[in-house]
Every structure is written in C-alpha cells, then in structure tokens.
Nucleic acid binder design. Structure first.
Lengths: 110, 110
DNA sequence: GGCTTCGGTAAGTCGTAGCTTACGGTAAGC
DNA sequence: GCTTACCGTAAGCTACGACTTACCGAAGCC
C-alpha cells in the first residue's frame, strides 16, 4: 500500500475529513477541534494520529497544547496520485474514442 | 455530505481503490475485475454500485456483460475539491509565516 | 425451446473501525 | 508543592461494512 492509497484510506472516514478540512484553514489544537466536532477529545486525538501516520498532518508543541497543521508535502503526494488517475483515464478514453472511429460500424455501445 | 466528500468516503476502501485504479486504464466488465481481484464477483458488484452512486464510475451494457468505466466528470469534482484543500492550506501557511515575521518575539495567539 | 454466460440482489456471518469512559503524564500558573 | 489545563493511551463496547453463498433475471448461442 503506497502512501497515496493509505492517505485515501485515512480520508475515508467522514470525521477525519472534517478534521482535515478544518486544518486547511490553519493550525488548531486538539481541544479546539473537539469543541467544534460532535465527537469527544480522545476520538479527535485518535483520528489525528491516523492522519499523522500517513503524512497528511504534522504536529508541534505549543506550551501545554499541541497544534496540528496539514502537511503540504503529504497533500501534494495525494494530489499527484489523483492527477495520475486523471491522465490515465483520459488516455484510456481517447484510445476508446479512436477505436470507435476506426470501426464506425462497431457494436452496441449505449 | 457533498459529492466530493462522498467520493472520498467511497474511495476509503482499499478494494474500491483497486477497482477504480483498474478502471483508469480502460473499461472493464464485472467478471474481469473479479478475476484479477482477491474477492468474489458479487463483492465487486457491490463495490461498483457504491462507486456508481457517488458518480465516480459509469456503466454501459455490452451484450450479456456490463462494462464499467471511470466518470471523468466525477473525477474532476474530486480533483477540484483536493485543489481547494491545497489552496486554502497554502494560504493559511503564508498567513502564518507573515504573522511570525510581524511578531518575531513569538506569540500566544488566543 | 434449452443452455450458457454474465451480473445484480438477498440473507447472513464476522471482523474491525470508531466511539466512549477512565486513567496517567507533562507543562504552566499560583 | 499543589492545582489546573491539555493531551495521549488503554480497555471495552457497539454498530456497520465488507465478504460469502445462494438465488434469480436478462441477454446471446446452439
């Protein structure tokens, strides 16, 4: 399982999506996230661990608090993977279109 | 739950990731996918239904078979959502950097 | 009309992911 | 030192989702 697929799996959970989306607006502490989200603080902490393990967020100490932010590098990896999907599907589509043009009689494709 | 978040949730499952990735190389029938993947044909069928419901794939009849392909429009929506993450996190990062420059004596903000 | 291929759906099992409460540990403030 | 604020981890419960087998329908082929 590559990094990008692990990131996709991590972002599969709606709560983690919400956490990550909040972090895109700027760094937040665990308690701040728990105040906004409909889950307990330990739950947020566990989700952050998952996001951190796959490289989507980073954490830094700030006194007694711990600030989490999105990791631009991790997000870049995920975007690159999606771009790969895009290019390959586009290429496959074009090839399919060409095959249709070469065989205009073709078959039933609806 | 917007379309993009639903797509992310759908792609959270590794098997669905594998299915989707195969489809980026071109259209495939259910049986063809099941032959390659380590799960049964009904399982593939169920996963395809999920991917179809969120708009990531489309299906078309081909005789007794049913061909599935990635939906470029759906994939575009997902990419746009990721781009939103990217831009917002970048903006937040720049703002944070500016704040640090304005107050080099370090801070405690809130 | 049979027969085969292909695929969607129903029903049921089982593992695990997500959540909670409870606890311990560290840093700041008095 | 004591207390408070903040957070991570352990333990345990529960719900859900991914999978299987079994069944049935639809489209081609003889």
């Amino acid at each position: 399982m590559t990094n990008a697929t692990a990131m996709l799996t991590a972002l599969g959970d709606p709560t983690r999506q919400a956490i990550f989306e909040r972090l895109t607006d700027g760094p937040l502490a665990v308690g701040q996230l728990a105040d906004v989200l409909p889950v307990s603080r330990p739950a947020v902490s566990q989700h952050l661990k998952v996001l951190k393990d796959v490289g989507l967020v980073t954490d830094r100490q700030d006194g007694t608090r711990r600030l989490y932010s999105v990791d631009p590098d991790g997000l870049a990896v995920l975007r690159a993977h999606l771009d790969g999907f895009w290019e390959r599907s586009l290429a496959a589509f074009q090839q399919h279109a060409n095959q249709d043009r070469e065989r205009p009689d073709h078959d039933r494709d609806n």
